[in-house]
Amino acid sequence: MNFQEIILRLQNFWAGQGCIIQQPYDVEKGAGTMNPATFLRALGPEPWKVAYVEPSRRPTDGRYGENPNRLQHYYQYQVILKPSPDDVIDLYLQSLMDLGIDPQQHDIRLVEDNWESPTLGAWGLGWEVWLDGMEITQFTYFQQCGGFDCYPVSAEITYGLERIAMFIQNRDSVYDIEWVDGITYADVHHQAEVDYSHYNFEQADVASLMTMFNLCEKEALQVMKAKLVQPAYDYVLKCSHLFNLLDARGAISVTERTGYIGRVRNLARMVAAAFLEQRRNLGYPLIKDPALREQLINSEEAI
């Protein structure tokens, strides 16, 4: 099974479960969780089921294309099920079987792993899923997002696509993954990995990045004043990525680190609050039962 077939199968599987198949978000981000289809939609009372591939950037993980297991750019397959269904683990296991992974032939374990994103003010409890000792998925029940309690609770399933592909194709290096007949992962991404490693670690201009961070923060605040939720969120994502770049460049001391994280978290909180307000003002259109919607809005007004 080649790389794109794995993705296509996952798309089909989760489409079959009633998920909206969204596309990657067009701003750089460290993980699929930061896509507004997760970060914003996990907030508030409306149900939401979505699945998408997310290209993710972690500048500090770059290894100049020399390490067979580490990349500064890689792909996640992200699923959000809100509220988390009772059979969510069974659904996940079925998706593995759809990829040809038979749990009886392997050792599949759910090992406690709690997720926290200080920059997003978000945390949840769950597991990392081990397949014969290899971590292939992060599974999280969101408890808080942007500092707000999640109710209902979303289940987040994040597949590490490269790891699953390496496993299925029995490859020791991520670069040897077959993307499609005759084309490897290296053909698609290797040179960019090398170039980005040089950029992230050596070439990125610290002064410019700092200026850009400050500008993006200012723009986020400015846009927030106009209550434009997603445009403001774009600048939060940019701040987050710029912070990661500065970090990779070794430009942020430990003391400053806490400060930067706090600044991004502040922005994320503001956006989360504005999103909640916006959905309320819209009358929670995704709650299809009018009686339920009415009841919810009335009870919120009572508070």
Binding site: P68, Q104, Q105, R109, D132, G133, M134
Partner: peptide
């Protein structure tokens, strides 16, 4: 290692675990 299961296709499990450890030790 200790698997959560019986000895069915234990060789597959062993090979998978060896590969993961190899990557770790390579690091």
């Amino acid at each position: 290692g200790v698997r959560n299961g019986n000895d069915f296709s234990l060789d597959v499990v062993r090979a998978g675990n060896e590969r993961v450890l190899r990557a770790r030790l390579e690091d």
